[in-house]
Nucleic acid binder design. Structure first.
Length: 104
DNA sequence: AAGTTGACGACGA
DNA sequence: CTCGTCGCCAACT
C-alpha cells in the first residue's frame, strides 16, 4: 500500500510545472483518496527524496511551507522554491493565487 | 495488538 | 488571518 501511494505521489510531483506549487489535497485527489492529504505529507516525511522529486513544491492548503521540512527546515524549502522562480514570504507563505498549479 | 503522532483539511468561533 | 475541534489514515512507539 505504502509503495503504491508513494509511486503515485512521486509521479504526480514530476508532473508539477516548474514555478508552480500544489497542495497536499491535490495530490490526495490525484491518488483517488481526498482523505489522503495527511498521508501524502506523512509518506513524504518518512520517504523524502528532495534530490529527485520536487516535494518542496508541495504546500499545505494555506500555501505555507512545511515548518518541519527535513533537510534544513522550511528555510531550505524556501530556497528551493525561490530557485524555481517562486517568491516566498518571510513567513514561509506562497501566493496560491499566483503559484498554485491549476490542472485546467 | 493498542495507543499516539503528524510535511493535512474543513468547519466554527 | 488565528485558534480550537473533528475527521482522516499510514507510520511509529
Amino acid at each position: 500500500m505504502r509503495d503504491d501511494l508513494m509511486q503515485g505521489i512521486l509521479e504526480y510531483l514530476l508532473t508539477i510545472p516548474e514555478g508552480k506549487v500544489v497542495t497536499y489535497k491535490q495530490v490526495a485527489e490525484y491518488l483517488g483518496n481526498p482523505g489522503y492529504a495527511r498521508i501524502v505529507g506523512n509518506l513524504l516525511h518518512v520517504n523524502p527524496d528532495p534530490e529527485r522529486y520536487p516535494c518542496f513544491q508541495v504546500v499545505n492548503h494555506k500555501g505555507r511551507l512545511a515548518p518541519n521540512f527535513g533537510f534544513g527546515g522550511a528555510e531550505a524549502q524556501k530556497i528551493r522554491l525561490e530557485r524555481d522562480g517562486i517568491r516566498v514570504s518571510e513567513d514561509y507563505y506562497v501566493d496560491l493565487e499566483e503559484y498554485q498549479w491549476k490542472e485546467g
